[in-house]
Amino acid sequence: MTGTHPCQGAAKTAVRDQLLTARRRRPLPEVGTAARAIADHVLATDEVRRAATVAAYVSVGTEPGTTDLLDRLVDAGKRVILPVLLPDNDLDWAVYHGPTSLAPARRGLLEPLSTPLGVAAVATADVVLVPGLAASRAGLRLGRGGGSYDRALARVPVGTFTCVLLYDDELLADVPAEPHDRPVTAAATPGGVVRLTA
C-alpha cells in the first residue's frame, strides 16, 4: 500500500493478529449474546430510529453478529443495503430482502442477490454500520487491512452516523492509524453505544 509508514503497518499487523486470536477464542454462546445486545443498542439510537436507509453488513465467523440486527432493521421498515465486494476490494451495494436473499461470495462472505446499486449508494444511507477489529476513543477504526471500508467511508457525507460494531474489550484508548484511515462517529458494543470524538 503506497504511503504506508512501515512502523504503522507493522503495528497494525501485530494488533490485528492479537484481536483476531482473541475473537477466535470467544465462546459461541458469548458471540450470540453479544449480537443480541448490540442489536438492541443500535436499534435504540435516535439515528437508527429516524433512518430510512441503513448500510450494514453480514457478519462472518466470530465477528459481532449482525443476522438478528439485519432482520430487525427490515422489520422496523428500514431499507437495508449490504456490501458486494468488487475485484479491486472496493464495495458496491445491494438491497437486503431477508436471509434467503443472500448467497455465498468470495472470502467466505454472504452477499445480496439483488441488483447492485453502485459504489456511491453508501452515500444515500442515513446510518452506516461497519465492521472492525477495534476502534479508539478518537474514532479511529482498525479494519482487516483491505481498505474496502476506508474507501466506502470516504463517500459518506460528513455528519452521517457511522458506527463500528465491536466487543467491549475492542474499544481501545488508541489504535495504529495511517493517513487514509477514515474515522467513525460511534462504536456499538454489548455494553452500549459509545460516541467517539474525531
Rank of each mutant, 00 (worst) to 15 (best):
V31G: 01
A123V: 13
G192Y: 00
T21A: 15
A187Y: 12
R79E: 12
L113A: 08
E178V: 13
G145P: 12
L196V: 15
T162K: 08
P99T: 08
R26T: 12
G65Y: 07
A14L: 06
D71C: 10
A22N: 10
T124W: 04
P183A: 03
K78P: 03
H5M: 07
R107L: 14
A22K: 15
L73C: 05
A177C: 04
S101Y: 14
R36K: 07
A188E: 14
A34G: 07
T66N: 15
P176I: 02
I38C: 06
G146E: 08
A39G: 15
V184I: 01
D40Q: 06
A105W: 00
D17G: 13
L142M: 12
R25D: 12
P116C: 07
A138C: 06
P157C: 06
T160S: 03
G147P: 11
L102D: 10
P190H: 14
A94W: 00
T33K: 13
A177M: 03
L113C: 14
V194P: 04
A14I: 11
A134I: 10
S59M: 03
L140K: 13
T62I: 06
L165M: 00
S101C: 12
V80C: 08
A94K: 03
A186D: 05
R26E: 11
G32N: 04
P87C: 05
L73S: 03
V15G: 12
R182Q: 14
S101P: 10
L28P: 15
T4L: 07
G191P: 03
T115K: 02
S101T: 07
L117I: 06
Y57S: 10
A123S: 12
R182T: 15
K78W: 02
R155I: 15
C7Y: 13
L133R: 09
A55K: 06
P112V: 04
V194Q: 07
L172E: 05
A56I: 10
V84H: 05
A56H: 08
G118D: 10
A103M: 08
V194G: 05
R155S: 12
D92A: 10
P179A: 15
P179V: 08
E170A: 13
A52P: 09
A135N: 05
D90F: 06
